[in-house]
Design a binder for these strands. Structure first.
Length: 885
RNA sequence: GGGGACUUAGCUCAGUUGGUAGAGCACCUGCUUUGCAAGCAGGGGGUCAGGGGUUCGACCCCCCUAGUCUCCA
């Protein structure tokens, strides 16, 4: 049975049992503490913990998941995959153990004709938590499973909790017996290779208290509302039903494995080492495909780095299989074709996905090539020192600084007859890991306890009226001060206020929160910040300026009209700039984040190179033309599917409700999913002026711009600057650039000429100075102060010129000059003088010490000096004496 | 977020406890010569990424900033 078929049957089955079919959430988890969606229940956690009331009583989903913790195990075992799909059925205070067990049994064992999987009941085993007699009883009643195929297990295996106080409960797991050829008899307790876990039923029954580990905590009592959370690993069931050996051989993965084998000329199943590599390729290509599909791009930060690592590991594995040419285009196409039945959006978005992957492949091939040069050097160094292995430091340097994978280093070193010091490498890696972890621990802000909001959220959502009006009358439904629920607020206090409705826009979608006041009779609260701590709930951070406030009070919210207009202008401007960006650069320049507030906008987008000035100007022109065209701005609510069909740009990493708001500017010109506040016509934005463009890491860039009056002010300042320049340089503005260039050039030429001239002039003194040369024995010596000079170079040049005149005889030249308030002293010696044992370095040193400085150099020429200009005469006399010996 | 590395002529890169910045290619001029990266001779071209510090003296050592590459969380 094909994987997509199992998936379909699953959803159909639970839909027939009145479950809401919930589409898979993005792999980018909404929970900021999770990097990815790592389990099927992740999107349902707020409902499980009761933070947010569940919108349905029972639900089912097939959730995309990514886990990279065991990345090194991929390909070596049957069931470690970095990407997998988790089938789940959930009950929120509705059905419990009995139905959960009966559904599971029925779905697995009922015939294929009737929509089940048609698994032979004889092959199924079950485990339960050791104290959970109730489940054993229910299994016996709801299924045909004999008691001897039900095994009891302890807390470690069969008890679920989040690791923190909250819901917890026993689990019951279903195992599939692969048969005697895979291991010994005796159920999952005996052999987990033969008996494969396929389905975990979690019975959220109890409330747990504080505790240290997975199996040591206190049970506080029964939960008022019991939940069911189950997970059936789709890939596991698929590989069992397709009667293949592992999850890399199922229909959704195998084509990539086969293609990799074909490209490398290897035969799958021939050599374990190569098989592992082929499986790694198949697994990682699929994971990267799905991640990029959900909007993750290779980068140096958390999520981006995971994708980068997956992609690079593919390249590495292919190299180890002997393939050096680019292969991503073929591999990704094969993976997409294998996956598109379940995920048709991959097909639509494939151009972008492929380009992202191929860009990374090209970048890494470049990295590998430059790494090879370094590796060659390290190898010849090791060979030169007669070492038998590359040092751990070399291997680590290659990996850490040049991105060269250890495995490749190992292979290439081996070919050169060398080993590698893997232990040292590993210890260096551990040090690096520890450093990063320590830092993360230190920086981690205390995990905000959101439970205080759950109480208010359960009363309902905050109604947002701010699209239509700046004012709203509301009732105070909650007050929170210092994280504690309170009944009233007094003047001067800062606190959070929760209302039944509000016209205040909470910070989201990049738009800063509204500013204004909440008022009542003789009560004034200044709104400092507005946030949505929990989906659907708005919290106003306020300062009580006047009066006091109590629960249940009637108040009015008053958003500052000025602020809102500025915010709307900035947010609409962000959409316009985004559309302009994509028009100029192409659709791949997708926004990856943004921030805007009155007068300012910032927009991060995926792009890998610096924008030229011309491009920036073009983007600015397109933006301002769209503003000038007075395009209509409209907001419409529609379903996600409608919005997508409509061509609206949905941003990755943002999560949207069933019903989404689409903002259009000029009809199709700009269509984005967005909850923000906007102007009603583009002309109201006024003006946008780009101010900065910078890189925020590989593959991502940031534009900053001023909006509206601030844009005008910015341009006015620039104009004033130009005016000042034209004034100082005395040219019309059109000639400004030329004038600056020519002035700079002239200045450089003048400086050159000047220094040549002063050198020339200095040279005229040469004969006179030679004339004055004294002699000691056969050695002539010249000691001269030439006064002010431009630079030490002049003194050196002059000294060399003098020395030339003394060649080929024995001669010593000492020339001093003054430059920048300090003495520059140069001593040069001729060949013969040196042969007679006169060294320039020593002479300079002695004389410089008198000058309060130091000096040194080589025997033929040395430089020194010091700040004591007044001591120069003394120093020169000392020098003469020293030469005279 | 925390580490590591790199930035030198138009291009690719050298540059030795800190002591006059080089090579190859490209460019210009002249000669020679027209068989595939032509040869020979000569020449121009550098704020050694930017800023600050230490020093008599910094491409080199220290600090800050920017850009690029890379590893880890």
């Amino acid at each position: 049975m094909k994987t997509a078929e199992i998936r379909r049957r699953w959803l159909d089955y639970f839909a027939s049992k009145d479950h809401e079919v919930v589409p898979s959430a993005s792999l980018i988890s909404e929970d900021p503490t999770l990097m990815f969606t790592v389990a099927g229940m992740v999107p349902f956690i707020p409902y499980m913990t009761g933070l947010v009331p569940a919108p349905y009583k029972r639900a089912t989903s097939v959730q995309k998941c990514v886990r990279t913790l065991d990345i090194e195990e991929v390909g070596k075992t049957t069931r470690h995959g970095t990407f997998f799909q988790m089938n789940g059925n959930f009950s929120f205070g509705d059905y419990f153990k009995k139905d959960a067990i009966s559904y599971a049994w029925e779905f697995l064992t009922s015939s294929r004709e009737s929509g089940g999987l048609g698994i032979d009941p004889e092959r199924l085993w079950v485990t339960v938590y050791e104290d959970d007699e109730e489940s054993i009883k229910l299994w016996r009643e709801q299924s045909s499973i004999p008691l001897e195929r039900i095994q009891k297990r302890g807390m470690k295996d069969n008890y679920w909790s989040t690791g923190q106080p909250g819901p917890a409960g026993p689990c019951s797991e279903i195992y599939f017996d692969r048969g005697p050829s895979y291991g010994v008899e005796g159920g999952p307790e005996a052999d987990e290779d033969r008996y494969i876990e396929i389905w975990n039923l979690v019975f959220m029954q109890f409330e747990r208290g504080e505790g240290t580990g997975k199996d040591s905590f206190e049970i506080l009592g029964e939960l008022p509302s019991k939940n069911i959370d189950t997970g059936m690993g789709l890939e596991r069931v698929a590989f069992l039903l397709q009667e293949v050996d592992n999850l890399y051989e199922i229909d959704e993965v195998r084509p990539v494995l086969d293609l990799a084998a074909k490209l490398s000329g290897k035969t799958y199943g021939e050599k374990e080492e190569d098989d592992v590599r082929l499986r790694v390729v198949a697994d990682h290509v699929r994971s990267a495909l799905m991640l990029i599909g959900d909007g993750v791009t290779p980068a140096n930060d958390a999520r981006g780095y995971v994708v980068r690592r997956l992609l690079r590991r593919v390249v590495r594995a292919m190299r180890l299989l002997g393939v050096e040419a680019p292969v991503f285009k073929k591999l990704f196409t094969a993976s997409k074709d294998a996956m598109k039945e379940s995920y048709p959006e991959l097909d639509k978005d494939f151009e972008r996905i492929l380009r992202t992957a191929v860009n990374e492949e090209e970048a890494f091939l470049r990295t590998l090539n430059s790494g090879l040069l370094v590796l060659d050097e390290e190898i010849s160094k090791a060979k030169g020192s007669k070492a038998k292995a590359l040092t751990g430091d070399s291997v680590f340097l290659l990996h850490d600084t040049y991105g060269f994978p250890v495995d490749l280093t190992f292979e290439i070193a081996q070919e050169a007859g060398l080993g590698i010091d893997r232990d040292k490498f590993t210890s260096l890696m551990n040090i690096q890991r520890q450093r990063a972890k320590d830092d993360a621990k230190q920086k981690r802000s205390t995990n905000a306890d959101l439970s205080v909001y759950g109480e208010f959220r359960s009363l309902g959502t905050t109604k947002f009226t701010g699209y239509e009006s700046l004012r709203s009358s509301a009732k105070v439904v909650g007050l929170i001060r210092d994280g504690q629920v309170v009944k009233s607020l007094a003047q001067g206090e800062t606190a959070e206020v929760i209302l039944d409705e509000t016209s205040f826009y909470a910070e989201s979608g990049g738009q800063d929160s509204d500013s204004g006041f909440i008022v009542a009779d003789s009560v004034v609260l200044e709104v400092l910040d507005v946030q949505k701590p929990v989906k659907g709930l708005v919290s106003h951070s306020v300062l009580v300026k006047q009066g006091g406030l109590g629960l249940g009070d009637k108040v009015a919210t008053e958003v500052s009209a000025d602020w809102r207009l500025g915010a709307a202008q900035a947010h609409s401007a962000t959409h316009v700039v985004h559309a302009a960006l994509r028009q100029v650069l192409g659709p791949q320049a997708l926004q990856s984040g943004s921030y805007n507030k009155p007068g300012y906008l910032r927009l991060d987008f995926s792009w890998s190179e610096q924008l030229s000035q011309a491009t920036k100007t073009e983007i600015e022109e397109v933006t301002n033309l769209a503003i000038r065209q007075d395009l209509a701005v409209s907001a419409r609510f529609m379903s996600v599917q409608e919005a997508k069909d409509f061509g609206a740009v949905a941003l990755f990493g943002e999560t949207y409700d069933e019903s989404v708001r689409v903002i259009q500017i000029g009809g199709p010109w700009s269509r984005e999913l967005c909850g923000g506040t906007h102007v009603s016509r583009s002309s109201q934005v006024g003006l946008v002026s780009l101010m900065g463009e910078a890189s925020v890491g590989s593959g991502s860039r940031r534009l900053e711009a001023y909006v509206g009056f601030e844009a005008f002010q910015f341009l006015a300042t620039e104009r004033a600057l130009v005016a000042t320049l034209t004034d100082s340089l005395k040219v019309p503005r059109e000639q400004l650039i030329e004038k600056i260039n020519s002035t700079v050039e002239e200045l450089r030429q003048a400086q050159k000429t000047l220094s040549a001239l002063s050198m020339e002039q200095l040279m005229t003194r040469l004969p006179m100075i030679i004339e004055k040369a004294k002699s000691v024995g056969s050695t002539k010596f010249v000691v001269e102060n030439i006064g002010q000079v431009d630079s030490a170079e002049q003194v050196r040049e002059f000294a060399v010129a003098v020395r030339e005149k003394l060649e080929p005889g024995s001669g010593v030249v000492a020339i001093a000059g003054e430059c920048a308030g300090k003495v520059v002293l140069l001593v040069a010696t001729t060949n013969k003088a040196r042969a007679a044992g006169i060294g320039a370095g020593k002479l300079v040193k002695e004389a410089s010490e008198i000058l309060g400085g130091g000096g040194g150099g080589k025997d033929d020429i040395a430089q020194g000096g010091g700040p004591k200009t007044s001591e120069l005469a003394k120093a020169l006399i000392a020098l003469e004496k020293s030469i005279a010996g």
